[in-house]
Design a protein around this nucleic acid. Structure first.
Lengths: 213, 213
DNA sequence: GCGTGTGAACCTCTTCACAGCG
DNA sequence: CGCTGTGAAGAGGTTCACACGC
């Protein structure tokens, strides 16, 4: 398997392809064409083929791609064949809701714990899982963290929680907090920003931005 | 100050600038430079200036940008001076958590209602707001919908809820559901996909650097 | 026939570096 | 001097169109 330098945009699309393939697999389909994948993802078939051809030749000319085979290859590219664990920091409404929603259909991710520093929350159960104090967050193996941390804490607490996670050796963090955070080199930090999504939607409604799906 | 065709990426950055400016305003700052904005958003100062210069000349050479003035201009560009209402469809864990989290600090958005078709949920209160049946979702003025709908319903229910919203005249939808949805031309549909964010994070953790094979 | 894989053209976005103005 | 605004260069991503194999 080749690992070229890839843009985040491409990775996102590969993630979508993987999801489509999983769903197709559940429906019992064994073959998909680039056109079918493209329709599902709202892009062109050429774009799909271009993305895939960066990594190898996964298709059969004249017929298409074998669902199971292509899915394996994409998971290999993404590195999600054996997905990392995911912990939730913050047992507030968002943290507990994420835990309750679970991660089924996402290709094997699971939430392995939820943590909070509020004494009133520690010890309670969210969806059957006991809330542990922040000190209970496991130290990550030096240089080879295999766990993703999701931050969903009170406003203004994001940065100090992130600092603690970095200290513990986490290398990948997803923040639901609104405030922009600072992370050192080597720690990948991403955000889920409802606020920004609303801005994009408002812009497209009012300024006829015309950006499709 | 005419809005040309702008990429979504630029809109996202403008949304970030707006957020930084609001926070700076709260801290009492009246002037910000492109460098300060850049540091907050994790990009280069040239990128900030480039984004802004697309729409006009908002800065004062030698000093920087007036916080309140630039914020007004950006909100004008985004169309968020008077933000649309936001309704939540789905009073499950995610829907209720979103309502509970609220939208403070996002520039004026507010949730104006929450809806569900489960008789067991209708009539209950989430964060003090009564859950109404789907039939209660207001019809949108023809051709000029001014409300954003957030979908957070049970797995597999996304498409039929979306169809109903389109029927009612909604033009902007944010889906927290995993399944890819089909929307007609003219309806902007966006997703919050934790699954994809996890894939991107996993990829960055495991495929970091230019290691071949 | 059908659908993949890909060179090449095309287009968009980013970065640099500096002119110009307060 | 400091910082903005921007032409020009560069990098990166997308689309086209067609050769190739099934």
């Amino acid at each position: 398997m080749i690992a070229a330098k890839v843009s985040e945009k491409t990775i996102r699309r590969l993630s979508h392809y993987a999801r489509c393939l999983r769903m197709a697999g559940l429906r019992g389909e064994t073959i998909m064409t680039s056109q079918q994948l493209a329709n599902n993802c709202g892009i062109s078939s050429a774009a799909v083929r271009r993305d895939l051809s960066t990594y190898g030749e996964f298709g059969k000319q004249g017929s298409g791609y074998r669902v199971s085979e292509l899915l394996s290859n994409i998971e290999d590219i993404l590195g999600t064949v054996d997905p990392p664990e995911v912990i939730i920091v913050g047992a507030g409404s968002i943290g507990c809701a994420l835990l309750a929603s679970g991660l089924e259909g996402t290709g094997g991710y699971t939430y392995s714990g939820i943590f909070d520093n509020d004494p009133k929350k520690v010890g309670r159960k969210c969806s059957g899982v006991e809330v542990l104090p922040l000190e209970g967050i496991p130290l990550q193996p030096h240089g080879s963290s295999e766990t993703i941390a999701v931050i969903a804490v009170s406003r203004g607490q994001g940065q100090c929680v992130l600092d603690m996670l970095v200290e513990k050796g986490f290398k990948a963090v997803l923040s639901f907090n609104l405030e922009p955070l600072q992370s050192p080199e080597g720690v990948t930090l991403r955000y889920v920003e409802v606020s920004t999504e609303l801005d994009v939607l408002t812009h497209s409604m009012r300024r006829k931005g015309g950006m499709g799906k």
